[in-house]
């Protein structure tokens, strides 16, 4: 079997390898997958899912989660925030054409040249116990009355919160729920600036068994925005980093190259039917070496 009969360079990664890479990232950069208010730094046992991290993370004092501001209580005259956490676990990828991930009926069968993503997202909120209300209500009443009659207060318009630090009552326990998210995605080549990058694009997304349907749609809408705008743009990989950075290789050997060496995707369909190709449970890329004087 010849790999380079249609291009100068060829690189492939099997889904098992990529899933292992994903597990290493989750263990070594847990803050990419866990988001919580500062309260949980001292109370990690209250999180919805215990965070597993590599010993090096603890040794370096790295954060286990990305710190988020408390969830604001709308309308409170004295700002009050609630502790919460969002955690992503069980991330798994499945390249066409195996069926490691069973997609929900809404997404159908995994089409050719596509890959499936499954992950679990857990949300936890630190609800206020009754005794906190006993303490907080008089305080809020005081602030509300103090603001009464001021220009910025009216019964038809709630003034913007003052830039005061919110009161964040400590949570005694979290109320958690977890959702399973499925997505169908594909890879494509594209430019960022003048360089070629391998990019990930979203084709479809589904959160299963959530009622009412409108709530499911809203959560899917937000998850799609997070994936498309927040996560996937960060996963773009420069072509040289994928295959072989020949310029860097020569530089390491102390050889300065006068010519411009670049890697370009092999053309579709002139050279290869699909590039990148997602098939045989692998992501395959076909690349040509271009040397210009």
């Amino acid at each position: 079997m010849v790999f380079t009969d249609r291009s100068d360079l060829y690189a492939a990664v099997h889904e098992d390898g990529l899933n292992r890479v994903m597990r290493h990232i989750m263990l070594q950069r847990p803050s990419l997958f866990n988001y919580a208010t500062p309260f949980f730094a001292q109370n990690p046992d209250l999180l919805c899912v215990p965070i597993k991290a590599a010993p090096e993370v603890f040794a370096a004092g790295n954060p286990l989660f990305t710190v988020q501001s408390p969830l604001p209580v709308l309308g409170a005259a004295q700002p009050v925030g609630l502790n919460y956490c969002v955690q992503f676990t069980d991330v798994q990828l499945d390249f066409h054409d195996s069926d490691t991930i069973k997609l929900p009926p809404e997404l159908g069968e995994l089409p050719p040249q596509r890959f499936a993503l499954r992950l679990k997202g857990c949300f936890g909120l630190g609800c206020l116990p009754d005794d906190y209300y006993t303490d907080l209500i008089p305080l809020e009443e005081l602030f509300a009355v103090a603001q009464a009659g001021k220009e910025r207060f009216s019964f038809t318009h709630v003034a913007e919160r003052q830039p005061r630090d919110p009161i964040v009552p400590p949570a005694r326990r979290l109320t958690c729920f977890c959702l399973e998210l499925f997505a169908v995605l594909h890879f494509e080549w594209g430019k960022i600036g003048t360089d070629d990058y391998l990019k990930v694009r979203l084709d479809g997304l589904e959160i299963v068994d959530l009622q009412p349907v409108e709530m499911e749609n809203i959560i899917e809408c937000y998850a799609e925005a997070v994936l498309r705008l927040g996560v996937l743009p960060r996963l773009s990989i420069k072509i040289e980093k994928m295959v072989l950075d020949i310029t860097a290789l020569l530089r390491q050997q102390g050889i300065a190259v006068g010519q411009q060496i670049s890697l370009q995707p092999a053309p579709v369909p002139a050279a290869v039917p699909n590039n990148p190709a997602v098939e045989d449970d692998q992501l395959k890329v076909f690349v040509n070496l271009v040397v210009t004087p």
Binding site: F3, T4, D5, S7, D8, L9, Y10, A11, A12, V13, H14, D16, G17, L18, R20, V243, L244, I246, L250, I255, A256, V257, G258, Q259, I261, D281, Q282, L289, V291
Partner: peptide
């Protein structure tokens, strides 16, 4: 099946060798 596979064609080797020759001093 291996998790990672990278292949370099002989033609690319030849071109890289020429590149090395032209630039090595």
């Amino acid at each position: 099946m291996a998790h990672l596979t990278v292949a370099v064609s002989e033609a690319t080797f030849i071109r890289s060798f020429d590149l090395l020759k032209r630039n090595f001093v």
